[in-house]
């Protein structure tokens, strides 16, 4: 009996682990796209709260989710983002909103964080807290888990692109490189960004095969199919042309 219980527990644990492993971060990035972000009242300073729409109506936003007491990914994430954005060509086309998702954080804590990163005088960077964290988190499918042993949140490094109408246009999870940021910035400014279908072994006749490593398209077998009708037509024309002419000359000879 005991053996069976242990076996069942092990099986369930195994299945849960497997299912957890199959959830790809890239699929999480697809959630909430073209949905509106929650219009949270933001505390930016000591004055009255400012609704989020006032910020995104002014300029599109890159929303960064962190908390000041974070001993994990938050600081390297912010640092990397700051460095990456320094060299972007269209820096003026968006603002960066750094939001705390920890209810313990106050606007003073956030200002201190801004000073630590030498961003307190940078108008492009806005540091804020809100009393509507659950609603904001839900609108962007961001679910940090409190770890009481470490006294820390277990969370993704999430960057959310919001255009000037408040729609979520793209999400990036993890510390991402320059090209991904380019796509994010393009999306918040409503600039078209090409996307490619995922490789599928059942697609045999692609016109072009996209290589995600090099970002280049290679010619595929499908291109042959586009040329095939024209090739077949020429062959039919030549075959009929010669066969009817040879028959005609045979008839002439026999007569």
């Amino acid at each position: 009996m005991f053996k069976n219980i242990v076996f069942i527990i092990l099986t369930i644990s195994f299945l849960k682990t497997t299912s957890a492993q199959t959830v790809s971060p890239s699929l999480k990035e697809e959630s909430d796209i073209y949905e509106k972000i929650y219009d949270a009242p933001l505390i930016l300073d000591e004055t009255q709260p400012t609704p989020l729409h006032e910020l995104y109506n002014t300029k599109p936003l890159l929303v960064v989710l962190i908390f000041t007491r974070c001993t994990g990914v938050c600081n390297p994430f912010l640092l990397r983002l700051k460095e990456s954005l320094q060299f972007k060509a269209k820096k003026d086309s968006f603002n960066v909103l750094v939001m705390s998702f920890d209810p313990r954080d106050s606007i003073k804590d956030m200002n201190l964080l801004a000073r630590r990163f030498a961003l307190e005088d940078n108008n492009q960077w806005i540091f804020a807290v809100t009393d509507s964290i659950p609603k904001l988190n839900q609108s962007i499918s961001f679910y940090p888990v409190w770890d009481s042993i470490r006294n820390q949140y277990d969370h993704d490094a999430l960057l959310v692109g919001v255009n000037n109408e408040g729609y979520i246009t793209k999400k990036l999870i993890g510390m991402r490189g320059g090209h991904d940021l380019d796509l994010l910035i393009a999306s918040v400014n409503n600039v078209f960004s090409p996307t490619y279908r995922l490789p599928n072994k059942n697609v045999l006749f692609s016109c072009f095969n996209y290589d995600p490593k090099t970002g280049k398209n290679k010619l595929g077998l499908g291109l042959l199919f586009i040329a095939l009708p024209a090739i077949l037509t020429v062959l039919i024309l030549i075959v009929i042309g010669f066969s009817v002419r040879s028959k005609a000359s045979e008839l002439e000879e026999s007569s």
Binding site: R197, N202, V203, S206, C207, G220, G222
Partner: peptide, 14 residues
């Protein structure tokens, strides 16, 4: 039954 999937670009060209 899903074992063969077409390439959308090829189909549009054709």
């Amino acid at each position: 039954n899903g074992n063969f999937v077409n390439d959308a670009l090829l189909m549009k060209n054709l």
